[in-house]
């Protein structure tokens, strides 16, 4: 990627953010609500992409990190009534710790086995939530007394701001020397190791960063919804959608992941009139993209740029 293109992408992104931030002036509260969720979801997808696209590790369990962040924040608020902001910080911290605990053993194994370990982590969390129903609300879900605000404009700007900052940090990290080491170790760990880089340390760092943003975003989402449930922040189906969003938007692009997430949520809404077939259609479109444009939206756009 040439620096010219990088700057071009930068200007496009800047333009998109500026346009997005003026949306509350002319679209309805409902659309804003939709995009608010899409932005949080975008952060999930970007965090996942950092781990997969750059460190080459397939994390099947993004919802383990999201769920730990979300439930920690929710439980602390419901049990001790601390202010949402403290709860959100605690949620993110818990996700980082969880990420660390998961990453240490998981990184010992390679390929599909890493993915499986992360998958099992999600299943364990799910069982935990159900078994300790008194604390977590079980399958019914946890009702959280406080929300950040019920003003849709404020919520929208918080989400947009959060996504923009996360995107800048994650993208910057991916382009930095650390990101390059990660990419190298993802493609050929042995050679990267031979060059004197501490692979495990780099990957661990990537895992922790990914965990931080996933947990933070999960906690914010909980205080937006006013409820945390397995179906919204832990279920494997949610994790699958994070992965689909990242693949759809374009792997190794970070920003594409956010694009994919916004597309999935908005498309699902557009198809609402088709009722029961909406999910079918979204899946079919996603499958076609996977089959015919494996680079994803941003991947396809980038390669066209490169050719010109």
């Amino acid at each position: 990627m040439g620096s010219f293109f990088k700057s071009r992408l930068f200007f496009i992104s800047l333009g998109a953010v500026i346009i997005a931030s003026t949306l509350p002036l002319y679209v309805s509260g409902y659309v804003l609500g939709l995009l608010t969720v899409a932005y949080y979801f975008g952060v999930f997808a970007m965090s996942w992409d950092l781990l997969f696209g750059f460190a080459g590790e397939v994390n099947f369990g993004p919802t383990f990190l999201i769920g730990v962040g979300a439930y920690t924040a929710g439980i602390v608020n419901a049990q001790y009534g601390l202010s949402p902001y403290i709860c959100i910080v605690l949620g993110a911290a818990a996700a980082v710790i969880a990420g660390f605990v998961l990453a240490l053993p998981a990184l010992r194994v390679r390929g599909p086995y890493f993915g499986l370990t992360t998958l099992v982590a999600v299943l364990m969390l799910q069982n935990f939530v159900v078994v300790f129903a008194d604390l977590t609300g079980g399958e019914i879900g946890l009702t959280i007394p406080d929300v950040i605000t019920i003003d849709s404009h404020a919520n929208y700007w918080i989400a947009l701001g959060f996504m923009t900052i996360s995107a800048a940090i994650l993208y910057g990290l991916a382009q930095s020397p650390v990101g390059l080491v990660l990419q190298a170790s993802g493609q050929d760990a042995v050679q990267a190791g031979a060059l004197g880089f501490n692979i495990v340390k780099h990957k661990l760092a990537a895992f922790v960063v990914s965990a931080f943003f996933s947990g933070l975003s999960g906690a914010l989402l909980v205080f937006y919804f006013g409820t945390a449930s397995v179906g919204t922040v832990v279920d494997i189906a949610v994790g699958v959608n994070v992965i689909v969003a990242a693949v759809l938007g374009g792997r190794r692009t970070v920003l594409g992941a956010a694009l994919g997430a916004i597309f999935l949520i908005v498309a699902g809404e557009f198809l609402r009139p088709t009722g029961e077939l909406a999910t079918f259609i979204v899946s079919a479109v996603a499958l076609l993209v996977v089959l015919f444009f494996p680079g994803g939206f941003l991947g396809a756009a980038l390669s066209r740029e490169a050719r010109q």
Binding site: V244, V247, T279, F280, S283, A286, V290
Partner: peptide, 16 residues
């Protein structure tokens, strides 16, 4: 990862 994603989406389509 593409096979995983692809077959998963395919499975969801059948299920729906």
């Amino acid at each position: 990862i593409f096979v995983l994603t692809g077959t998963l989406l395919w499975g969801i389509m059948i299920q729906e």
